[in-house]
Simulated assay, not measured.
Amino acid sequence: MNRRELLRAAATLPLAHTALANSAFAQAAYPTRNITMIVPFPAGGQADLAARPVAAALERILGKPCIVDNRAGGAGGSIGNAQAARAEPDGYTLLMTLSSLAVLPEADRLFDRPVAYEVSQFAPVARVLADPTLLAVPASAPWKTLQEFVDDAKKRPGQIPYGSSGPYGTLHVAMEMFAASAGIRLLHVPFRGAGPALTALLSGTVQALASAPGTLKQQVEDGKMRVLANWGNERIASFPELPTFKELGYKDVEFYIWAGLFAQAALPAPIMSRLREAMAEGVKAPEVIKTFETAGSPVAYLDAPEFSKFVAADSARLIAAVKKIGKVE
């Protein structure tokens, strides 16, 4: 390098240093404006239950409004997930979504559709809830036990309607997993989210629903519906008398409906660190703990490294289940 080139290179160093400093300052100052937390379902479901108290806690901790945006476009949450995936990786568009995050791209591939998004576009921030799914029926339904339900379904193949949050969403996969194991065929009625599906069960439009304890507990206590089985590996505190599918002989039927916060994979590390700190503090807030425990869904917090491992393991299990179920409507 000659003298002139050396002087020209040296002249750029302060500018480069200033640019780096400004970038670091901008990230350290995060947030400077409102944050949007996309929930890819209507109000009333597990993702919405997780999002609202968490958003309120983040708003208090970060000092800027955190607005829950229900993108209830259907498709099992795929539309809202895809919108979050395409957002700028600046920490101002977050996603509170469910375990179906990994299932939906596989469903697209199964039907040879364009894939709306890939899981690799997201960075897990924190898990908030993780509940086994429960099988609910209206209080007026004739079935008092799971065996009665199965026996009736075998007599009337394809005639018992069940609701879901959309094709290959969490509620759909859980029910088809059970139906395949029991050797029965049910009638799938998809809705735009778990909230509308729950309303349909209460009105008698559908006769069965797989849903999280937090969205069912009050309805069961009010005598509007009953639960027949638990998709978890063990019984849960909010429904201690409810047997698991495994207890009832369905050894391969296990499904959890977890909710977690995600950002984009390219999110700068300083902003990710700030979000992780805020989430770790937020889930300890008394109002958050009380809201979840009242709903029967206690906090099941995992920080980003552990949550990433959890997502990878759970996704592999669910993708295998979807491939086994195959194409269903």
Rank of each mutant, 00 (worst) to 15 (best):
A102W: 01
A102I: 10
A102Q: 08
P105W: 03
E106F: 00
D108M: 01
R109P: 02
R109M: 11
L110E: 05
R113A: 14
R113V: 00
P114C: 04
V115Q: 13
V115A: 10
Y117I: 13
Y117K: 12
V119Q: 09
V119K: 05
Q121A: 15
Q121Y: 09
P124A: 12
P124G: 12
P124H: 09
V125A: 08
A126R: 08
A126L: 08
A126W: 01
R127Q: 15
R127V: 02
R127Y: 06
V128R: 00
V128G: 07
L129G: 10
P132N: 10
P132M: 10
P132H: 07
T133P: 00
T133C: 12
L134H: 02
L134I: 15
L134C: 10
L134K: 03
L134N: 03
L135Y: 04
L135G: 04
L135K: 05
A136H: 08
A136C: 12
P138S: 12
P138M: 11
S140L: 03
P142H: 05
W143K: 03
L146T: 02
L146E: 06
Q147G: 07
F149I: 04
V150T: 13
V150P: 05
V150H: 01
D151P: 01
K154Y: 01
K155D: 14
R156E: 13
Q159G: 00
Q159H: 08
P161E: 06
Y162V: 05
Y162N: 06
G163K: 09
G163T: 10
S164Q: 08
S165D: 15
S165L: 08
Y168K: 06
G169R: 04
G169D: 08
G169H: 06
G169S: 12
L171P: 00
H172E: 02
A174T: 11
M175V: 13
E176P: 00
A179N: 11
A180R: 15
S181G: 02
S181Q: 14
S181F: 01
A182S: 07
A182H: 04
G183P: 00
I184Q: 09
I184D: 07
I184L: 05
L186P: 03
L187K: 15
